[in-house]
Design a protein around this nucleic acid. Sequence first.
DNA 1: AAAAAAT
Length: 496
Amino acid sequence: MSDIESTVQPAAPAQVRFSDFGLSPDILRALTDQGYEHPTPIQAQAIPVVLQGRDVMGAAQTGTGKTAGFSLPIIQLLLAHANASMSPARHPVRALILTPTRELAVQVAENVQAYSRHTPLRATVVYGGVDIKPQAAIMRGGVEIVIATPGRLLDHVEQKNISLSQVQMLVMDEADRMLDMGFLPDLQRIINMLPKVRQNLMFSATFSPEIKRLASTFLTDPVTIEVARSNATADKVTQVVYKVNEEHKRDAVAHILRARELKQVIVFSNTKIGASRLSRGLEQEGMKASAIHGDKTQQERMAALEAFKRGEIDVLVATDVAARGLDISDLPCVINYDLPYNAEDYVHRIGRTGRAGASGDAISIYSEKDERLLADIEKLIKQTIKRGELEGFRPGASAPRSFEDRGERRPPRRDAERAERADRGASAPASNGPAGRPSERGPRPGGPRRDKVDPWFLKPYEPVRSSSPAPVATTSSSPSKPKGQVAALLGGLRKE
DNA sequence: AAAAAAT
């Protein structure tokens, strides 16, 4: 399906410059503003191909600079065809970029806006969970580039805030994830509104059969671009697992964080409640922690992310909402409080560290019952992860504050739920009561949809990769990161 | 066994 080499070994990035691609001086200036001079491998491959007007099926690992890889040539093409495409339409959206999560949409938009800042092109982002009116106003004013999550985009289309009839370029970012999340019908609807003739760019972490099918449906004679082997974990990431009793997992995380005064760490939890609970626990330990997950309001999610990026928060406790795509400047360390159920997610999670050539540490806590998950992960990444010993870890050393900490059974459900509700992030009980039951906390924008059950467990196993808009070079906002510290913590453990 | 996304 492609006529171009996949998995090319591109020339060393240092030899290629952005100025070699014939990009507009206005684009180059924006790159210079940010100190970017040399493209990453995927950028070096993607930019010329997109500029040729070809469809692209792209795969790239986290931190490869994929966003710039498609947005730079898109901006260039829109500039080049500015006159030819002058349209009488009131809202001539000419490039549409779809992403699976809101945060990713925001992030892509920030990049696109930065790259196009010296051009007359206008880019905006639309996503759910926030007031629709300001978005509508901006789009009615006219924009050339829209970055969106599918549901809210359709909402805007229905409200006639935007017309998609002039879209010349479509990007499906994290396409595999969008499939995972059940966006296929939405994607179909959106694509049906687009002109038949257009350029399509699809990025996906994997080339699963589902993705290939999607590609064959929506792409025309695509060029395949792939950087880095599919299920490889970043070379520079040192991985270790610590086995502890289930009830000591939180203490173990606290111990690791405290022992080395770790800053700028993401801790992944499998559940929203678990994330909130852990975050709260760490805060009670005196750490600056915050949780981010789908039951937080969009405001809270953004606030947590921003606070983390600004360094006001040391520990971001997250569900897999943050596992993929988020360009959180390259972290020294990622901790798995839970091993992910889906082995692919492990790769995504640890992809948050060791990015842009830097080294990183991926630490995972697991307990007896997770042996199987660990085995799955090791099978996927084709390596054995080092078993470590937590030096100086005395479970329960810090005063237990919860029943779980004491290894006891949970208190009666009523109390547990009240505690969770107090936690801002908690969702309603899974086995939900009547639909319109007034919430004690008022409307919760990010709340679960009840209209359909997502039978995730019935779906075929669908591996997913990562993505990420890491720009060409990473502008790190946190100055000194204790990268070596985790390695030190790992003690005399030999490398694999 | 989960999480995410329009309202």
